[in-house]
Design a protein around this nucleic acid. Sequence first.
DNA 1: GAAGGTATCAAGAAATCATCAAGATTGGGG
DNA 2: CCCCAATCTTGATGATTTCTTGATACCTTC
Lengths: 230, 230
Amino acid sequence: MGNNLPRILIVDDEPAIQRFLHTALDNGEFSLHQAENGRAALAAAVNTKPELILLDLGLPDMDGVEVIGRIRQWSQVPIIVLSVRDREDDKVKALDAGADDYLTKPFGVGELLARIRVALRRSLQQAPEPVYHIDELEVDLARRRVLMRGKEISLTPTEYDVLRLLVTNAGKVLTHRQILKQIWGAAYLEQPHILRVNVSNLRHKLEKDASRPCYIVTESGVGYRFKGQS
Amino acid sequence: MGNNLPRILIVDDEPAIQRFLHTALDNGEFSLHQAENGRAALAAAVNTKPELILLDLGLPDMDGVEVIGRIRQWSQVPIIVLSVRDREDDKVKALDAGADDYLTKPFGVGELLARIRVALRRSLQQAPEPVYHIDELEVDLARRRVLMRGKEISLTPTEYDVLRLLVTNAGKVLTHRQILKQIWGAAYLEQPHILRVNVSNLRHKLEKDASRPCYIVTESGVGYRFKGQS
DNA sequence: GAAGGTATCAAGAAATCATCAAGATTGGGG
DNA sequence: CCCCAATCTTGATGATTTCTTGATACCTTC
């Protein structure tokens, strides 16, 4: 089926819900894919690059909120949460983690379809590429890989996080505090040292000459900036 | 209150709901506006250009769905419907008309705030940031970048602060004391020297001929003025 | 041409930054 | 349960940038 209908990834481990959703959505307008747990969902999100994800929060292997967070590291694909949990706290957490909508089971098929249309209508206008090419550097957010002239560079988790933050905001100056808050949390707001060490390490791994950086530029007294294409 | 908090337009005719929403949203993060009927809502949408609209479907003078349609003819502002109507048909109609979300009363304040954050988060990333163009000078406040004929100019933190203050008040004369107080604090009110040095440095970096400045004009005995676009 | 305000240069002081390396922590495997 | 390896954090030090101040020359207006 090499069509180009919008791909929808259904993430749910209950066969009953799977069947229900397949029936509800099998109207020839979508191409349906499926995952039964969090790990499979993350893999499928990378591989099939769906236009929309329907996500049940109650997965056997990991928390749904974490799935949202992991996907949001590299993709803006609309995520609609479908859950039996009706507690406000669950909704807030999922929405703040990056979900676009939250439907409490049971829900009507008509409403689900309408909310899917809303999400798709919106995402049609924007589709940022999750792979960044800057000169000879290549950052693949979906696969969490960094290549320099095609050769893979191995980064530690923190180094990668810093790089991802800088790359996704290429061209923009990020203050020390912004970066620290995002990656180390509010408790480290006043500790730019730890950020400097990581930037230094990053530069030694991906700059030609770490003392004359081309990618990660220092904005003295302010923060760092990833030199984008613009 | 000339702040730049996100403006939220509340469209509802019941005083009880108005009060409830004002209480719920009055946390200092939003600037609240209000309309009691459809006509007023359409006018307010044009005039206050809100970042988000909370819309009750049951308005005295016109149908809420029509309000959505009329706004969608010219604006992509996020619209969250708040309604007592729980019929699926109502939801589908409102969402298909262009609403971004639909909350059935009664709902929790936490959920409302979370859905507002979702809507604002989305519209924030596609909103083009303000860039000042003055002749061949370009000041991009969001990226903290200054370009002269497309070429980047590197400024120190204080130089940038001074320039930003002048540019955001382009055309207006700022007295020495105003600038000093804003950037160096009240303790430096009587030290115009330090400001002069910075203006001089700025001019050398961005004026064609620093001795005949075109952008930063001296108002002798008063202060400085940034030449507006006019 | 004097006076008050203005512009520029340069140098020491202060703040910020880069780097190396040693201790602390963590997670996985035996 | 312990050990190992990778990573994270912290400390120390030298390099770099930026800030502030003083000296001096320059306008402009009366």
